[in-house]
């Protein structure tokens, strides 16, 4: 009889131990949950750690700027044809082609420099009116550098090897 009761006492001790274990466990869980909540609350920090907000040269389109581009190319060229045909046959916006160059400057620099202060560029390559083609865009993108810019690029193909490109870049 006494032996049975001793055995029961030992079982109870085991229960006490188990409960204490759970009490400690719940405290540890609470601490872990609090730490997790604090980390989640520092959302900006977490986003920076995982680089979630950094745009890595996000290409997009500006359909309103594209309308200007299409209409620029459709503009009649003095002496016949239009700007598209002129650029297609004679090449880039060079100094001697004042009509195409000045019209392009007036339209694209005039309308889009406010919305795209970083770069407004048009051409088939480096040219007199818009300078050299901006680097770090399509074709020469360095994956090791995170560019915090947004850029718009529209290309009009002139022939197999040549296209007229409008590049607008914003910070």
């Amino acid at each position: 009889m006494l032996n049975n009761k001793k055995a029961q006492i030992q079982n109870k001790k085991a229960q006490v131990g188990e409960t204490v274990t759970w009490m400690v466990a719940i405290l540890i869980i609470i601490v872990i949950v609090i730490i997790s909540v604090i980390v989640a609350g520092l959302g900006e920090l977490a986003k920076n750690i995982f680089n979630l907000d950094n745009k890595i040269v996000v290409a997009s389109s500006d359909r309103i700027a594209e309308k200007s581009l299409y209409n620029y190319l459709l503009t009649p060229y003095p002496g016949g044809g239009n700007v598209y045909l002129k650029i297609r046959t004679e090449g880039n916006l060079e100094e001697e082609d004042k009509f195409s160059g000045e019209l392009a400057s007036e339209i694209f620099k005039g309308f889009y420099e406010k919305n795209y202060p970083m770069v407004v560029w048009l051409g088939t390559g480096g040219n007199y009116y818009f300078g050299s083609r901006p680097s770090s865009v399509r074709g020469d993108f360095d994956p090791n550098i995170h560019y915090l810019v947004d850029y718009v690029s529209s290309a009009i193909y002139l022939d197999e090897n040549k296209y007229l490109e409008l590049i607008l870049m914003n910070k």
Partner: peptide
């Protein structure tokens, strides 16, 4: 948002 664009009509008026 403030946007402007260049456009022609069918008579090529700007």
């Amino acid at each position: 948002v403030e946007k402007s664009f260049y456009v022609l009509d069918k008579t090529n008026k700007q």
